[in-house]
């Protein structure tokens, strides 16, 4: 693996979309890399914020509007497919690819991961401290005689909000 995980890798890791080998590689790397673990925590935090915002602002779609959208969408499906296929025409695809490449280059240049000069130590997730504390408790007579498994660690657990 490169010195740090790429943002794309982390997003895929958070969403469980990496192949098993790549997933294990990222998992292992993060155990020893506070920088990537911090980025991973930020990604999780962003995801949770978006999720919470979505839940907070969720509105019921009026039934009449939903019906109207369905009716309007059905006859246009074939047209949409044609539009999608037209994307691959060179006069559209080439400029689009150029734009994407420029954007990717910009992100790469601005990314702290690629600078190679960042030597400061990123924050270590509070979850790592909580897990370590639990691990250390195994010698206590009435503690749970099992520290949290990796899939149940504080880093991955989400609390179930109580009903209001």
């Amino acid at each position: 693996m490169t010195p740090h995980c790429s943002p794309e890798q982390l997003v895929d890791y958070v969403n469980g979309e990496l192949a098993a080998a790549a997933d294990a590689e990222v998992y292992l790397h993060m155990a020893d890399c506070s920088f990537c673990h911090d980025a991973y925590s930020s990604e999780l935090s962003l995801r949770e914020s978006l999720h919470n915002f979505g839940k907070a602002t969720e509105r019921e779609l009026p039934a009449s509007l939903a019906d109207a959208i369905r009716q309007a969408a059905t006859p246009q499906r074939r047209v949409s497919m044609l539009n999608w296929q037209s994307f691959w025409r060179p006069r559209i695809a080439l400029p689009a690819l150029g734009g994407v490449a420029s954007l990717a280059l910009g992100v790469l240049l601005l990314s702290p991961h690629s600078s190679g000069v960042s030597t400061s130590i990123a924050q270590i997730s509070a979850a790592a401290f909580l897990d370590r504390h639990t691990e250390a408790m195994v010698t206590m007579p009435l503690a749970e005689h099992l520290s949290a498994p990796t899939f149940e660690s504080a880093a991955t657990l989400q609390e179930t909000p109580d009903e209001e």
Binding site: S120, S125, A128
Partner: peptide
């Protein structure tokens, strides 16, 4: 937990 680096715990997600 104590260390000499600038590494207080990150509380993202909490």
């Amino acid at each position: 937990f104590e260390n000499q680096h600038n590494t207080p715990a990150g509380v993202n997600g909490f």
